[in-house]
Design a protein around this nucleic acid. Structure first.
Length: 477
RNA sequence: GGCCCUGUCGUCUAGUGGACUAGGACACCGGCCCUUCAAGCCGGAGACACGGGUUCGAAUCCCGUCAGGGUCACCA
């Protein structure tokens, strides 16, 4: 039985890399009929916030990455927050102490910091020298009376460790190069490498799928598993997602959190499809896959072992493709409402605008522009560097024709416009440009006949008249 | 600095010793369509980091160089 987990720490929003890690864990579990668990790693008391946990859960739900066990829904291997699992950690720490594989360290953070800097300065690897292992009882008493609280370190057995990474293949590590990690802090709270091992064991995790930045943690964790006498899970380290400047993705790069993507007008299906193809690719020569098709094809053989650079332009194309070719207008309206976009136009028009526009939209909020154009009562013209006197002349000439035009359908509008063209000997751009500018204050956008159909005759005439007045007034000044 | 990982068009990638004149997608450029602008359709340009091997034959295997990334916390 396959069991995978996504284990975020609630110290910030879910970002694109985390989402991809969650996705791969989800995919592997689903592909193998296994279980996907969500575990919250909140051992950093200062930085962990319950709000972030809620945000991460919301974002995962938005992406439809459902878990089978987690802090919100429970399960047989709970609790699912590390802050609620102290009993497990204490029990396992005692085992290590009894075996002589963990020891108390009385060094202060400041002392450690000084030593580390010194080693780095001498261009030596910063290794802990195990000085607290040789402490006399007298010295210990002295530290204790000073009020020092010990942390616990894991005593790393020095050897050559062989293991297999499902993506990178055979690994061989000289563990004498690994510093004894602190596994329980002086405040009694376990650190990542220890809590992670204990939880992966007790939660029955069979496959640990995580980013490459954890590659160096793996030997430490395997060693702790071995010291405890437990079998360790399979490890699969997936390539990192890098920003366009080829460095680790961070807030300063912008548009990296799932929340931002959602607010920008991305649709979850497109985000999932795009990130699934970052570091993984199916055999077929195509790129559009729904989640079921991805699950069907997902395997470790086609996961790359080099990092991928994140390109938001390509993700926009996926978004465009999903909006125009895959999602129904109802689904799009659902997402618009989720964004709080509830245009003050009637239901029929809302639906019509979505139908008209979906084939050209890249980001959801582009619909808003159209809503606004249709809905507004007053357009503030910005004609700074457009030459408009000719436009006004055309509009004055055709004003009467517009007032008698049939607006009952888009086709009727098209026919009407063509008649006007013929009557006055106007080329298409000569008619369309002035009209578009008068109606929308723009020279590009939705198909003009659709706009005219949507706003209706009263608005059409009002806007054209306003435009003429505006330009006349301006030219007098 | 030590250790680890990695190098195919600008970007995501196909490629597992011969089918490679290195394929696809985004972006870019050009054209078509046309009832504007888009969208769509068609086409173009664009890469095996470098140097040595191994081999009849290397993008593919080996070594070196260079480059990029990660990590060495009482963060996770």
């Amino acid at each position: 039985m396959v069991r995978t987990r996504f284990a975020p720490s609630p110290t910030g929003y879910l970002h694109i890399g985390g989402a991809r890690t969650a996705l791969f864990n989800y995919l592997f579990a689903k592909r193998n009929g296994g279980t996907f668990v969500l575990r919250i790693e909140d051992t950093d008391l200062e930085r962990s916030k319950i709000e972030y946990e809620k945000e991460i859960i919301n974002d995962l739900k938005w992406l439809c990455l459902d878990w089978d066990e987690g802090p919100d829904i429970g399960g047989n291997y709970g609790p699912y927050r590390q802050s609620e699992r102290s009993d497990f950690y204490i029990k396992e720490l005692n085992k290590l102490v009894d075996k002589g594989m963990a020891y108390k360290c009385y060094c202060t953070e400041e002392e450690l910091e000084v030593q580390r800097k010194l080693q780095l300065k001498e261009k030596k690897p910063p290794l802990y020298d195990r000085r607290c292992l040789k402490l006399t009882d007298k010295k210990k008493q002295e530290y204790i009376s000073q009020g020092r609280r010990p942390s616990y370190r894991f005593m790393v057995p020095h050897k050559f460790l062989d293991y297999v990474d499902l993506i990178h293949g055979k690994m061989n590590v000289d563990t004498s190069l690994i510093s004894d990690p602190i596994i329980v802090k002086s405040n009694g709270i376990p650190t990542y490498n220890f809590a992670c091992v204990v939880d992966d064991y007790y939660m029955g995790i069979t496959h640990v799928i995580r980013g490459d930045e954890h590659l160096d943690n793996t030997p430490r964790q395997i060693l702790i598993f071995e010291a405890l006498g437990y079998n360790y899970p399979h490890y699969a380290h997936i390539p990192m997602i890098l920003a366009p400047d080829r460095t680790k993705l961070s807030k300063r790069h912008g548009a990296t959190s799932v929340r931002e993507l959602k607010d920008m007008g991305f649709v979850p299906e497109a985000v999932i499809n795009y990130i699934s193809l970052l570091g993984w690719s199916p055999k077929e020569n195509r790129e559009i896959f729904n989640i079921l098709e991805i699950i069907e094809r997902f395997d470790f053989d086609h996961i790359l072992d080099h990092p991928a650079v994140y390109d938001i332009e390509k993700m926009k194309w996926f978004n465009h493709y999903y909006i125009s070719n895959i999602l129904t207008s109802e689904e799009i309206i659902g997402y618009l409402k989720l964004l709080g976009i509830d245009a003050e136009v009637d239901v029929m028009k809302y639906r019509q605008i979505v139908d008209f526009e979906k084939s050209r939209v890249y980001l959801l909020h582009e619909f808003v522009e159209v809503f606004n154009i249709v809905n507004t009562n007053f357009i503030e013209y910005d004609l700074s560097d457009k030459s408009v006197t000719q436009f006004v002349n055309v509009l004055k000439t055709i004003y009467d024709d517009l007032s008698t035009m049939d607006l009952s359908s888009v086709q009727a509008v098209k026919d009407g416009l063509r008649l006007i063209q013929q009557k006055h000997g106007l080329k298409t751009p000569d008619l369309y440009k002035p009209l578009r500018l008068a109606l929308t204050n723009k020279l590009e956008g939705v198909e003009l006949p659709k706009i005219i159909y949507l706003i209706g005759k009263e608005n059409l005439l009002k806007r054209v008249q306003n435009f003429i007045d505006f330009v006349d007034k301006k030219s007098k000044v």
